[in-house]
Amino acid sequence: MNGKAHSLEPPIDVSALLASLELAGKKVAVERNGEIVPRSAHANTLLADGDALEVVVAVGGG
């Protein structure tokens, strides 16, 4: 996740992962293995060993 290895207890979906990171309800976007995981699909997208995730936010920029 975001370039670093994380160990998680399976089974875990994207919603549960965000909740465990205290990011539930926060304005974030998730990409899994290069594909966007829409917010509506967070709860039914199960993560698998070796998945590459990006979790991003909006920050100040020009």
Binding site: G3, L21, V55, V56, V57, A58, V59, G60, G61, G62
Partner: peptide, 20 residues
């Protein structure tokens, strides 16, 4: 207003106000 898209700081400053 322009904004940048960046990785969240996993495990840091979770209660910090956000730009949004």
């Amino acid at each position: 207003v322009t904004v940048a898209i960046r990785r969240t700081n996993i495990g840091q400053n979770r209660n910090e106000p956000s730009l949004l």
